[in-house]
Simulated scan of single mutants.
Amino acid sequence: MAGTDDTVADDDALYVLTAVLLTPAQFPGVLGDDYVAACSVLGLEPYAEGYGLVLGQDGGGARWTVVVDDVSLVAVAIASWDCGMEYDLSPDGGSVVSALPGWPLSLAVAAPGVPEPHDPSPEPGAEGPAPLTPPDPALWGPAQRRLGADEVASQWATWRGQIAESEFAQGSAPVSGASTSSPDPDTSPDQGRSAGTPPGESPGGDKRRTSGPHPGVRRALAEARAYVTEPPPPGRVRSAFAPGGARTLRADGPGWSLVARTDDIAFVLLDEEPGEVLPVGRGPELPGLLRSLDELAVRPLS
């Protein structure tokens, strides 16, 4: 994370805490199903070059999200922090597109030497956007569903390790929710994993379903397949690096999110299944679908 060496708080200074990219290939999923929708939430034009979002506090402790058009600068800062290196992210005034009150993401850090993080007070008589706020973790909706999918993508090995090959029917492309004869719902192989359940644990409650794949998963896969013939808005399907020459895919649609590895299985999250992460077996059709999605997906420049 970036900090500041100033010992005296300056109300006009931004004490940088973190930053994220907002490009067609990389953007916070909480903002929308695709890049165009994410830009719309922030009142930005969906330029192909994208933006950087710098999150920090002013000298009074108020939360601010500063939008800059120097994407390369923000990308270098993020890469440096990911490697454990210090990097002083200080965008110049000429690169600032807008300064938005609040943060779209929840942060567990705060700037030292200034008041606790809080939303800035609106200026008297001024009309401006409402402060950005992260999604409420106690609720479930599109933002939480996309945030959960982003988490699965970033921790693929952990989530994949909870699924055994024996949980999938031989030679088919089953999904979580297929019928099972297991008498114990907590250990039934057809049960989806909860997005809030620690690795190695099973969510409680009897969530066995009727025979056949979950209808929401069937719908999600059908709509994802339709993207191949009718390409969606930029960022609706994204492809990122994965070990072994594979790619990690993220796709979103109305009411669903998909996470997959091109050499492995997929996971689907649904608005109608709060907190559930539903596995999709590889089977005979999934590999071709993933290859097609990867071909049309937006990729990071580096």
Rank of each mutant, 00 (worst) to 15 (best):
A19N: 03
A19F: 10
P24G: 07
A25E: 14
D34A: 00
V36L: 07
E45M: 10
Y47P: 00
V54H: 01
G56W: 03
R63H: 04
D69G: 14
D69W: 10
D70M: 07
V71N: 09
V71W: 05
S72C: 08
S72W: 08
V74M: 05
A77F: 02
A79D: 15
W81Q: 07
W81R: 06
D88V: 12
S90A: 14
G93N: 13
V109R: 15
P117T: 08
S121R: 12
A126T: 10
G128N: 09
L132R: 00
Q155W: 12
I163D: 01
A164R: 14
E165I: 08
V175I: 13
A178R: 06
S179F: 07
S181L: 11
S182I: 08
T187V: 14
T187L: 15
G196T: 11
G205R: 09
G216W: 01
E223G: 02
R225K: 14
V228L: 15
V237Y: 01
S239F: 03
A240L: 12
A242D: 07
A242E: 09
P243K: 09
A246S: 15
T248W: 00
D264S: 15
E272G: 03
P274H: 08
V277Y: 01
L278Y: 00
E285M: 08
V298C: 09
